[in-house]
Design a protein around this nucleic acid. Structure first.
Length: 490
RNA sequence: GCGGCUAUCGUUCAAUGGUAGGACAUCAGGUUGUGGUCCUGAGAAUGAGGGUUCAAUUCCCUCUAGUCGCCCCA
């Protein structure tokens, strides 16, 4: 351990991936002699801190300059898409009357275990959980809805006028097998309407989802919708389904037989041939709804028809999160050429807040997967918001000039003029080259002579002409040139 | 979690059982303080560990990562 930390501090100034390789190589080349020692250290560390799951290779011990599996950096080159998504999502949320709520990424484990349900795949296999130093069982949230519900209860939002509309953006964590569009840290934007059970809100929420994806330029989508009924009727249906599946047990593939007890809905949802055959004649949730849910669902569909939003009713649609009652829906990409996945989903959870220990409060919400929205935008080559580019370059020569450049830079910036620079370089030719490459309209040259005179050279890059002006007038001169070139350049 | 395919400079594309090469990008130059193109030069890679071999980047195994399918979802 001390070895490693001294190494990383020594090299931390160099940066980037070369470093990672250098460290790895260096260590491995000398590891022959210190093999036993290193191993010993690793073993004690393993047993005391980390769960002794799989044996880790020595190479694995050395991987520290790499993101965790399924997690990734959102690099500068990709940010235009993310800006766009965040911008559209936030604006739409505001227009639909949602207030922003930001939540911690970690919560008590029990919130999710009780809220989502112990039987669900998410809780059983996909939770990032750990004990805090003070011994609390903590999880990284796999979902935003439960945090919102918790916050709603904790801060007594039930006294607010109803419905309470809350909107959040942030990462959630699920331990799944990564692939395109499937990450272990994924970003969601989440919308919840709490305190109202009117079917019009179910429709409004779907309308909002539709509006967001449309504004992002994403097409080729399909809304799938279903109703799972009240908690009570779900239990009854589940029993019914369970006994049906038991009777067809021998027709199911081996790996699905265990699911009959744990998650029978997954069998209905499966696209495996034999499962589909069995599912085809299975009792359908929609035929076993309680009368109120049935009426509610009918109403939701009527609203959607009125809105002109097309949808398909998918009787096998059941969501992985156990808190849903009545309406559930998902938005699927139907774009060709790539994996198919849902880019959003949600539903009604009228009984969750009551089950968490508050007065019964109906609610509906949904989440959009931001990573997948970005992916879709790339697929359809959607237009993205691009940052305004600097149209002025500030070049500087000499120590005194460099000192004055910082001041000049901030004068321009404060007057709303975006400026590019390369203060680290002193060579004028190089700086002019950079100015050219950046495509600026004006270059300011501040050299030793100008610094002494309190002037600066203002060069019009389009015409090539330049003039020397007093430093304090530079901002105005620059602005004037920019104004004149604005119509010329495309 | 299960199965298939893949892994070479920052990116991309070559090559090889015996010195790994190009392009783009980066950096430095092309005489004193002025521009895209051009010229010169530099740095930079066989994912990790093990095996077969005189010799492995190349063949084999394991791991890791990526990708595709299943499962599930966002």
């Amino acid at each position: 351990m001390p070895q490693r930390s001294s190494k990383s501090s020594k090299t931390s100034k160099v940066g980037e991936t070369k470093l990672a390789k250098a460290v790895v190589k260096k260590t491995s080349s000398r590891s022959g002699s210190s093999k036993k020692l290193t191993k010993g250290v690793a073993v004690t560390k393993k047993t005391s801190v980390v769960k002794p799951t799989k044996k880790r290779s020595r190479a694995e011990d050395l991987i520290l300059l790499q993101t965790l599996r399924g997690m990734r950096d959102l690099l500068p080159g990709e940010q235009a898409y993310w800006e766009q998504v965040r911008h559209v999502v936030s604006r739409e949320a505001r227009e639909y009357g949602f207030s922003r709520l930001d939540l911690p990424v970690a919560e008590y484990a029990n919130l999710f275990v009780r809220g989502i349900g112990e039987d669900t795949e998410i809780v059983r296999d996909q939770l990032y959980s750990f004990d805090s130093p003070s011994g609390e069982r903590v999880v990284l949230r796999p979902d935003l809805t439960l945090g919102v519900a918790r916050s709603y209860i904790q801060h007594g939002m039930n006294v607010l006028s109803r419905p309470v509309k809350l909107f959040s953006i942030g990462p959630v964590f699920r331990h799944e097998r990564p692939k395109e569009g499937c990450y272990r840290e994924l970003w969601q934007s989440n919308f919840e309407i709490i305190g109202e059970e009117d079917a019009v809100l179910d429709a409004q929420v779907i309308q909002l989802a539709d509006s967001i994806v449309n504004r992002l330029g994403i097409r080729h989508l399909q809304f799938q919708i279903n109703s799972v009924g009240s908690y009570q009727s779900q239990k009854a249906y589940r029993t019914l389904l369970g006994s049906y599946l038991q009777s067809k047990r021998h027709k199911l593939p081996q790996e699905f037989r265990d699911l009959i007890d744990t998650n029978p809905f997954a069998i209905l949802d499966s696209s495996e041939d034999k499962c589909m055959q069995v599912a085809a004649s299975a009792p359908q949730a929609i035929d076993h709804l309680d009368p109120e849910s049935r009426a509610h669902f009918k109403e939701v569909l009527e609203y959607l028809d009125e809105l002109g939003i097309s949808y398909v009713i998918n009787p096998h649609l059941v969501r992985g999160l156990g808190y849903y009652t009545r309406t559930v829906f998902e938005i699927w990409s139907t774009q060709d050429g790539g994996s198919t996945y849902a880019i959003g989903g949600g539903g009604r959870y009228d009984e969750l807040i009551g089950r968490l220990g508050c007065e019964p409060t109906p609610a509906i919400g949904f989440a959009l997967g931001l990573d997948r929205l970005v992916l879709e935008m790339k697929r359809v080559k959607a237009r993205v918001y691009s940052e305004p580019k600097p149209r002025v370059f500030l070049a500087q020569i000499g120590v005194l000039a460099k000192r004055k450049s910082l001041k000049m830079f901030s004068d321009l910036e404060r007057n709303g003029v975006l400026v590019a620079e390369s203060f680290g370089r002193g060579n004028l030719k190089t700086q002019m080259r950079m100015a050219e490459r950046r495509g600026v309209d004006v270059t300011l040259v501040l050299g030793q002579k100008e610094a002494l005179d309190g002037t600066v050279i203002v060069k019009d890059m389009v015409s090539g002409s330049q003039e020397t002006v007093l430093a304090e007038k530079a901002v105005n001169v620059v602005k004037k040139i920019l104004k004149n070139t604005v119509g010329v350049k495309k």
